[in-house]
């Protein structure tokens, strides 16, 4: 009797648990002018913590005095390597409390992998080219994604439940409360949109401004 009960229970669990994993969130991000916002990171916190994926290595390239990404989303425990693909030197550095480092990179050179083990945002600059900047978003959950050039964020395969979607972007106006939306994920995908108040890029056109 008991083994049968156990079997039934197991079957029930399998049967009912699989549709539970169907939740997904699609978020459309725009700025106050209605333009899509890329490079925002959306992270879900709530009922079920998203297990962090196994360790991954990432590369941020430097080309034309620009970092290859403006925002890189990684998980806690991942590492990041900086590569210089320019003909000039770069001096990448960060004074973030989450990770302090500096590497002077000759053309073609790579930094050693930098391990980031605490969640948060690490801003990285170049001590030679003041205008170069990139941000590493270190997430403690797998339920996080970065918006694409169309301003879309999709977080898939999230267990059903209620979550808070935290929205972050490097140019969010400081001093405002954190941008967050409460979402209940069920069997069908949830579509939401959100408007971000961003600081303008200044100066706007780079051609005639000094580079150093």
């Amino acid at each position: 009797m008991k083994p049968i009960l156990a079997l039934v229970a197991t079957v029930c669990l399998l049967l009912f648990s699989s549709p539970v994993w169907a939740g997904s969130l699609i978020l459309q991000l725009t700025d106050s002018d209605g333009n899509p916002v890329s490079d925002a990171v959306v992270k879900l916190t709530g009922d079920t913590p998203g297990a962090v994926l196994s360790h991954q290595s990432h590369i941020i390239d430097q080309r034309d005095e620009t970092f290859s990404v403006y925002v890189l989303l990684i998980s806690v425990g991942d590492d990041v390597t900086f590569r210089n693909s320019d003909q000039t030197r770069h001096h990448v550095y960060s004074f973030s409390p989450l990770g302090q480092f500096e590497y002077l990179l000759a053309p073609g050179e790579k930094s050693p992998p930098i391990l980031l083990s605490k969640p948060g945002v690490v801003a990285v600059g170049c001590n030679i080219h003041d205008r170069m900047i990139t941000h590493i978003y270190v997430s403690d959950t797998a339920w996080a994604a970065r918006s694409d050039p169309q301003g879309q964020v999709e977080i898939k395969d999230v267990p059903n439940g209620t979550y808070v979607a935290h929205i972050w972007h490097p140019k969010l106006r400081p001093g405002k409360p954190e941008l967050a939306e409460t979402v209940t994920l069920g069997d069908s995908p949830v579509k939401l949109s959100s408007v971000l108040q961003l600081l303008p890029d200044r100066p706007k056109s780079g051609g005639e401004y000094r580079r150093y």
């Binding site: 001096h91 550095y93 960060s94 004074f95 302090q100 480092f101 500096e102 002077l104 001590n127």
Partner: peptide
């Protein structure tokens, strides 16, 4: 001359 700094 501007040495890099990993502090504020």
């Amino acid at each position: 001359y501007r040495p890099v700094s990993v502090s504020r």
